[in-house]
Nucleic acid binder design. Structure first.
Lengths: 212, 212
DNA sequence: CTCCATAACTTAACGGTGTTAAGTTAGGTT
DNA sequence: AACCTAACTTAACACCGTTAAGTTATGGAG
């Protein structure tokens, strides 16, 4: 109620403005290409003001990542109401890809760059909760597919199947991010590649429908 | 004959020493973490001496990449004599994974780090030649599998199928390199994951063998 | 044999980077 | 009115990749 509260609010407002400016620049030009000075310019503060709100450049990106990955989990929630578990896997793969296309630099940092895992203490995402944890969401769909007899009997390990599906989709995305400008390979469009991957994975996991 | 030839030889010797030092450091610590000054220290030259042999840091990396790609292709050559094209794809996937496990930082530099594509002009690898170009090797096996009717009729695009198989195997490897220490996921052993990926991909591509 | 051009470097420096230390200022508290 | 602290700014540090200019050894020409 007093002015101390207004101060508190203003502080978080500045914090949010830094975050927004950083996101814009990281997404547009990549983590390394963006400098603290340019982020500061954008919001008309001095470069060092950022350090009053964030420990360093890395933690800036880290914070953007967790908040944006919660958006991914939110996207997944819309898919959760799909009844058919196999269709849910298919749609999750596409949503995951869309997300990676929208936030390639976040994706790169979180899944393509080795770094010491975040201390579970201060990780905002709740592990194992499909509403916040995208991997848990995938697992729960896979589990349902296995339990309702949709997959071949040899594919009975929920974790292994989930990791295979994740790896497949990740592979398409990661190669796209790292190599899409490389003229060495005559790349098919990303959408085609993702569809092909998901189709092949699901066909490979599912019980055959027709004889030869 | 004269000493000009000895000079030429010495020049290439220094060049090779720079390359070796750079490879050691890049592989041990990653591209960004290594500075020109440290490479120079290692071989006891001044930092700027490197620029007499290489245009810049990036071109150093590119030269290392092309030479290591050739090592991978050499591994593939041993597989080339396998008759069955589908088995060849399977074995190529495993060999590719072995290469990545043996040289994880090489792999990271080559396939997980975006960098401007090499000018085809000065690329030592002959594109499309399966003996030098690992991607072309994969394509040729896939092409043979398609042409001998091993795959379902909808999978008729050699490039698309090759890119899918590559992406699948890459996904397993890349997640392993970037995330294998992450306790968030209860990882299955790498060998199991690679086998699962290749099995699922090949089953998904192949004509079904049994009815349900 | 001398002179000189060139190759193969080194030293110094430039403009940039992330980050820290020290100084400043506005505003609430006592 | 005096003071204290939050929220900054300015100055500076230790790096970075890269370039310009200077140095030294050496092979070749006259």
């Amino acid at each position: 109620m007093g002015p101390t509260e207004r101060r508190q609010r203003e502080r978080e407002e500045v914090r949010a403005r830094i975050l927004d400016a950083a996101r814009d620049l990281f997404v547009a030009e990549g983590f390394d290409a963006v400098t603290m000075r340019r982020i500061a310019d954008r919001i008309e503060y001095s470069p060092t003001a950022i350090y009053f709100h964030f420990k360093d450049k890395e933690s800036l990106l880290q914070e953007l990542c967790t908040s944006d990955f919660q958006k991914l989990a939110a996207q997944f929630l819309k898919i959760a109401r799909i009844d058919d578990p196999v269709e849910r896997v298919r749609r999750a793969g596409i949503a995951y890809c869309d997300f990676a296309v929208e936030h390639p630099n976040h994706y790169r940092l979180m899944f393509m760059t080795p770094h010491p895992p975040i201390d579970p203490e201060d990780n905002a995402i709740e592990r194992g909760n499909p509403e916040q944890d995208a991997y848990a969401f995938l697992c729960s769909a896979i589990r349902e597919a296995i339990e309702t007899g949709r997959f071949r009997p040899e594919h009975d390990d929920v974790e292994l199947v989930s990791q295979t599906v994740w790896a497949g989709v990740h592979g398409v995305i990661a190669l796209n991010i790292a190599k899409h400008t490389d003229p060495w390979v005559d790349w098919r469009p990303l959408k085609k590649r993702i569809k092909s991957m998901i189709d092949v994975l699901i066909d490979g996991l599912s019980k055959p429908k027709r004889s030869r």
